[in-house]
Design a protein around this nucleic acid. Structure first.
Length: 292
DNA sequence: ATGGCTGAGTTGCTCAGA
């Protein structure tokens, strides 16, 4: 079973790339962030291509900002839109669309778009920390087979930032944010870092100043998996191809392939990509035509 | 150098993103 997560930075202008990407990578489950659509607009825009490709979907949107979704070809059950205990911004009366959860192929899947925080002295930063605490209560109770996928807006360690010195005191790297991430991730593994412990891996590059071309980015899009799921991970990588060329999101997708569960047949099994003998771990598995 | 780019709505500007 292949699970992907992608902050698309608005799905509408991304459609010319997103649908071909689905056809090429053929993920079984896709978590999206920053769709920037209402639920009705998402259905209008994506209903036809998703149905044609065999996906069911659960979208939780608000329109101009935020918006999250889960697409699945392996079942979509017990959908839960929104974050119980969401502090809202600036107050609980104005909650944002940043979480949707569903059970897909036996795995509890959370598509997460963590608040940005803006700057550490901004009220949005305190909101970010409160929001993470509320998320922690949900994912702690998600059962033995669960994943947290999405844009965490936190680089877990200095190795996940192109220039740690340049980021000291800025949002995404402060100790309280990292501590909040570590608390909510208790019982979960960071599966990409587990598989590439010493590689330079980023998932976001600023649009400006040729940052992607120079590989000056951050790893803030994560897939966190409970141990029973993490033990099934055959491959885990950032799909940098999707960040290249014309009209990309500023984030690349993060992808994991799970072997079949020991107690059941969950989705098609995908051979892992061959690990390069040297280099930077950017081998991209080619799309394979296969049917479950 | 605190900018650089991109997207959206309040369009020919502002805000937000990270």
């Amino acid at each position: 079973m292949r699970i992907a997560t992608w902050n698309v930075n608005s799905i509408r202008p991304r459609l010319p790339r997103f649908v071909p990407w689905l056809e090429q990578r053929r993920p079984d489950v896709v978590c999206l962030q920053e769709t920037k659509l209402t639920d009705a607009a998402f259905d209008d825009l994506l209903g036809e291509p998703l149905s044609r490709l065999g996906y069911a979907w659960a979208h939780h949107g608000q329109g101009q900002w935020n918006g999250v979704a889960i697409l699945s070809r392996v079942g979509l059950d017990a959908v839960a839109a929104g974050l119980p205990g969401d502090p809202g911004f600036p107050d609980p009366a104005t909650r944002e669309a940043r979480l949707v959860a569903a059970t897909c192929g036996g795995v509890r899947v959370h598509s997460v778009y963590v608040p940005n925080g803006r700057t550490p002295d901004d009220p949005h930063y305190a909101y970010k920390l409160r929001w993470l605490e509320a998320l922690g209560a949900i994912v702690a109770d998600a059962g033995p087979a669960a994943v947290i996928c999405g844009d965490m807006n936190i680089a877990p360690t200095d190795a996940d930032v192109f220039d740690p010195a340049a980021y000291v005191g800025q949002t995404h790297v402060t100790p309280p944010e990292r501590a909040a991430l570590a608390r909510l991730a208790v019982g979960y593994r960071d599966v990409v870092r587990d598989h590439w412990p010493t590689e330079r891996i980023f998932s976001y590059w600023d649009y400006r100043a040729g940052m992607f071309h120079q590989d000056l980015g951050m790893r803030i899009d994560l897939i966190l998996a409970t141990t029973p799921v993490a033990e099934r991970v055959a491959a885990a990588w950032v799909d940098r191809e999707a960040r290249k060329g014309t009209g990309p999101s500023d984030h690349a997708p993060v992808v994991v392939d799970l072997d079949t569960a020991p107690d059941g047949d969950i989705g098609p099994m995908v051979p892992p990509p061959s690990r390069p003998a040297s280099g930077r771990g950017r081998t991209i598995p080619q799309a394979r035509s296969r049917r479950p």
